[in-house]
Design a protein around this nucleic acid. Structure first.
Length: 577
RNA sequence: CGGGGCGUAGCGCAGUCUGGUAGCGCACCUGCUUUGGGAGCAGGGGGCCGCAGGUUCGAAUCCUGCCGCCCCGACCA
C-alpha cells in the first residue's frame, strides 16, 4: 500500500487524556481515537494489527478442533434470567427494551446463549465433546473504564465453550485450551505467564489467568522466578516472613493496659515499642448476614477472596461501626477475640504457634498483652491473608515477589452451573439422561495489542513483534523526488509483496526525517531505506527493535527482511523470543 | 458512588484571579527555497471559549445548575 493514500493520523504531541504508554502511543501513532469513556474507534493500523491477532487465534483454535460460530450480541432477558445472572450482573450489564417493552441486554459473555444453542441441538453423548468459539464484541458497563484499551466498555473477545460428558472430558478440553492459549500468546510475541486464579462467581473447580507483567495492569500476581510459582495475589499461598522479634516466653496471663487514642496497628506499635508482628489484628466482617471475627498478624492484610472461599459465603462485607459496638462493646481500634462468644473466630495460619501477643480489649482505649490462641480463647485456623513480596513459597524454596499484571486470557472449568440451570441434557450410553459439563475460555483481543505495546515501546514509539504489527516492512525512499530512488523503492516494494511480505511504500513527499519518525512511531518492525547509495545498487535494512542498519544490494533486501520476519516469528512461536 | 483535576482551533497550551473586539506553538492550505532523523521564509484558512440559565451597557472571564473527559478509591464473569 502507498502511505500517501492512507489515513494514518500521527500526532507529535500526546493528547492530555492519555496516561499509560499504550494509550498514549496508540493515539499518537494514529491507531485509535476515543468516542466516549471506554469506547474507541479502531483506525486502519489498529484494525490491521487486530486482524493479525485474530488470525493467529483462529489458527490455534482450529488446531484444537474448535468450531467458529457467531452469536448475537443482542440478547433477550429470558436466557439470563434462567441462569440467574440477569440479577447478578447488576449495573455492569447494558440493558434496553424493545418497542413492545420486552427486556433485552447487550452480551457481556456468552455462556447463556451458547448453552441455549446446545440444549436445543445436542441430544446424544455421541455428539460430545464439542468445542465452540466466536470472536465477538462484548459490552460491559464498567464503573470506571481506564487506561485506553486496557479496560473498555465495548471490546472484542474470543470466547470459547466446551461441552463434555464427564469431568475427565472437561480436563482434556481445558488442557487443550491451556496449550492453545500458550501458543497464541507466544506467537503474538508476548512475555506472559499462566497463573492459578480463583473462579469467582463463574463457579467451577479450576481456573487459570494468562498475565502479562506490566505496571499498567490492574491485577497483582505473586511470582517466584526460582521455583516458577505464579498465582493471582488473591489466591497465592505462601509462607510468611517470621517475626524478627520473638514472643515473650512463659505461660503468661492476659493483662489489660491503657492505650489512649491509639487505634491503628502502627499507633499501638509505636506506643508499645513492639513491632506490628507482635499484634493480632481483629477484623469484623459479615458473611451472609452472620458476623465473623478474623485475626491476622498486625502487618498482614486480609484476602477477602480466601475468606469468602473458606466460608463458602455468597456475600461478604465489613461490619458497620454500629454493629461492632453492638456486638463487641467497643469501636474499631480496640477490638479483640477474648470473651467473644457470639460469633465465629477465624485466625490466619501465620498466627499458629504464636503466644503472648497484643490485641484489642473490647474496651475503648484499652489493649491486652500476653494473649495466646488456644489458651486464652479458641479459634479456627485457615489461610486468610494476602501474600506480600518477601514471603517464601509454600515449599520454602523460593522468595515471592508481587507484581502488577494485566490479564489477557482466562480459562475456567465451569462445571454444571449453566447446563443444569438451563436444562442442557443428552442421552448417555445407558439410555439415561446425562448433564454435560462445561468449560469457558476467554481472550481479550485488544488487550493483546495493548499488552504488546506496553511491553515493547521506546522513546520513539511502538516496537511491535512482526507477527502482530500492521505491516512487516516499510520501504522508504529518502527523497521521493529523485526518480532513481523512487523507482528503486517501487521495485523493492513489488518484490516484497510478491514474496509475501506485508509491505508499505512511504511515497509521501516528506523529508526523510518525517518518514523515519513516523515509521518508528507506528511500530513497523523493518524499514528498507533507499537513499544515495542506490547509485551503487545498495540499500539499508533498518531493524526497529535493535536500531541496527545493515547494507544490502537492492535486489536482495527483501530476502533479508523475509528471513528476519520468519525467524523472529518462529522464535516467538517456540517461546524463544 | 466518594475524593481530586480538567473542558478555549485537529493536538499541546496561554488568557479566567482583576469583565472591554480570542491568542501562541504544532498540524493544515498556497508559493519559493530546502531534502538521511519531526526544515526555513512569506502569505492564508480554521473557534456556539462544553451546554443552559443568571448578573452586567458588555461575560471565555463573575454566579447557579447540568454535561463530558481523566486520575485515585469503591466496584469489576
Amino acid at each position: 500500500m502507498y502511505w500517501s493514500k492512507l489515513f494514518i493520523p500521527t500526532l507529535r504531541e500526546v493528547p492530555a487524556e492519555a496516561e499509560v504508554a499504550s494509550h498514549q502511543l496508540m493515539l499518537r501513532a494514529g491507531y485509535v481515537r476515543q468516542l466516549a469513556a471506554g469506547i474507541y474507534s479502531y483506525l486502519f493500523l489498529a484494525q490491521r494489527s487486530l486482524m493479525k491477532i485474530q488470525r493467529i487465534i483462529r489458527e490455534e483454535m482450529e488446531a484444537i478442533g474448535a468450531q467458529e460460530m457467531y452469536l448475537p450480541a443482542l440478547n433477550p432477558a429470558e436466557v439470563w434470567q434462567e441462569s440467574g445472572r440477569w440479577d447478578v450482573m447488576g449495573d455492569n450489564m447494558f440493558r434496553l427494551k424493545d418497542r413492545f417493552g420486552r427486556d433485552l441486554c447487550l452480551g457481556m459473555t456468552h455462556e447463556e446463549v451458547m448453552t441455549s444453542v446446545a440444549r436445543g441441538e445436542l441430544n446424544s453423548y455421541r455428539q460430545l465433546p464439542q468445542l465452540w468459539y466466536q470472536i465477538q464484541t462484548k459490552f460491559r458497563d464498567e464503573p470506571r473504564p481506564r487506561s485506553g484499551l486496557l479496560r473498555t466498555r465495548q471490546f472484542t473477545m474470543k470466547d470459547s465453550y466446551s461441552f463434555d460428558l464427564d469431568a475427565a472430558g472437561l480436563d482434556l478440553s481445558y488442557e487443550k485450551h491451556y496449550q492453545a492459549y500458550n501458543k497464541i500468546f507466544r506467537r503474538c510475541g508476548l512475555k506472559f505467564m499462566a497463573v492459578e486464579a480463583h473462579s469467582g462467581a463463574m463457579g467451577g473447580s479450576q481456573s487459570h489467568e494468562f498475565m502479562v507483567i506490566s505496571d499498567a495492569g490492574e491485577d497483582y500476581v505473586a511470582v517466584c522466578e526460582a521455583t516458577g510459582y505464579a498465582a493471582n495475589l488473591e489466591k497465592a499461598v505462601t509462607l510468611p516472613v517470621p517475626p524478627v522479634h520473638g514472643d515473650p516466653s512463659g505461660d503468661l496471663v492476659p493483662e489489660e493496659f491503657h492505650t489512649p487514642g491509639r487505634k491503628t496497628i502502627a499507633e499501638v506499635a509505636d506506643f508499645t515499642g513492639l513491632p506490628p508482628t507482635a499484634q493480632m489484628k481483629s477484623l469484623i466482617l459479615v458473611a451472609d448476614e452472620k458476623p465473623i471475627l478474623v485475626l491476622l498478624r498486625g502487618d498482614h492484610t486480609l484476602s477477602e477472596t480466601k475468606l469468602e472461599g473458606f466460608l463458602a459465603a455468597k456475600e461478604l462485607r465489613p461490619a458497620h461501626p454500629e454493629e461492632m459496638r453492638q456486638w463487641l462493646g467497643a469501636d474499631a481500634g480496640s477490638l479483640g477475640p477474648i470473651g467473644v462468644a457470639n460469633m465465629r473466630i477465624l485466625a490466619d495460619n501465620a498466627l499458629r504457634g504464636r503466644h503472648n501477643m497484643i490485641c484489642g480489649a473490647n474496651k475503648d482505649d484499652y489493649h491486652l498483652k500476653n494473649v495466646t490462641i488456644g489458651e486464652d480463647f479458641q479459634a479456627e485456623f485457615a489461610d486468610l491473608r494476602q501474600a506480600v513480596s518477601g514471603d517464601r513459597t509454600h515449599d520454602g524454596k523460593g522468595v515471592i515477589e508481587v507484581r502488577k499484571a494485566m490479564e489477557i486470557g482466562h480459562i475456567f472449568k465451569l462445571g454444571y452451573k449453566y447446563s443444569e440451570s438451563m436444562g442442557l441434557r443428552v442421552s448417555g450410553d445407558d439410555g439415561k439422561e446425562v448433564t454435560p459439563i462445561m468449560g469457558s475460555y476467554g481472550i481479550g483481543v485488544e488487550r493483546i495489542l495493548a499488552a504488546a505495546i506496553e511491553t515493547y515501546h521506546d522513546k520513539n514509539g511502538i516496537v511491535l513483534p512482526p507477527a502482530i504489527a500492521p505491516f512487516d516492512v516499510v520501504i522508504t525512499p529518502v527523497n521521493s523526488e529523485l526518480p532513481e530512488q523512487r523507482e528503486a523503492a517501487e521495485r523493492i516494494y513489488r518484490e516484497c509483496r510478491e514474496w509475501g511480505l506485508d509491505a508499505l511504500l512511504d511515497d509521501r513527499k516528506e523529508r526523510a526525517g518525517v518518514k523515519f519518525k513516523d515509521a518508528d512511531l507506528v511500530g513497523i518492525p523493518y524499514r528498507i531505506t533507499v537513499g544515495k547509495k542506490i547509485s551503487d545498487g545498495v540499500v539499508e535494512v533498518f531493524d526497529r527493535s535493535t536500531g541496527a542498519n545493515t547494507d544490502h544490494s537492492a535486489h536482495e533486501a527483501f530476502e533479508d527482511v523475509l528471513r528476519r520476519v520468519k525467524s523472529t516469528n518462529l522464535a516467538a512461536a517456540e517461546g524463544k523470543a
